[in-house]
């Protein structure tokens, strides 16, 4: 099927089979491998991207169901994302870094909806992103730090 996607402000016109997940199309057709697939069944959050502003799991989203959508990934240029990337670096909020792109996109969605989240709100808002290295305390600090550095 014909598919029009805008990924990080770049327009893509693609021919995509209906059963292909958005994650696969982002990684393969658009060659943006920052988006990770760790479980492929919607349980870990590594593949989180923004589709029309919502943080969704791209492994459980059909690409063809996103026709005309605006997709943002970790490779996108964005002030809030940049602030979070700096905060994740400063707080050591990752170890292997495989879950980090998904963490960052969830954090973007969280701070867009709630620019000054409490600790409990950060923990709730980030709870769909597993980090097996156990960087959670630093992730919480990083999200709070990025929120605090908002202009």
């Amino acid at each position: 099927m014909q598919l029009r996607l805008t990924i990080n402000d770049q327009r893509h016109e693609l021919e995509v089979e209906p059963h292909r997940p958005l994650a696969d199309v982002i990684r393969t057709d658009a060659a943006l491998t920052g988006t990770k697939v760790a479980c492929g069944e919607g349980t870990c959050g590594s593949c989180t991207v923004l589709v029309d502003g919502r943080a969704v799991l791209s492994c459980l989203t059909l690409a063809v169901a996103c026709d005309g959508a605006d997709v943002r990934t970790v490779e996108g240029e964005d002030e809030l994302l940049g602030r979070l990337q700096a905060a994740f670096t400063a707080e050591d909020a990752f170890q292997c870094g495989f879950c980090t792109p998904g963490q960052l996109l969830s954090a973007v969605a969280l701070l867009r909806a709630n620019p000054r989240p409490s600790s409990a709100e950060i923990r709730a808002g980030m709870s769909g992103n597993l980090c097996r290295c156990g960087a959670y305390p630093a992730i919480e600090r990083a999200v709070a730090r990025a929120a605090g550095e908002a202009r």
Partner: peptide, 14 residues
């Protein structure tokens, strides 16, 4: 902070 941080937070790390 990590020397590889930039690659890991931007999706550039392959």
């Amino acid at each position: 902070t990590r020397v590889s941080a930039a690659a890991r937070v931007t999706g550039g790390a392959r």
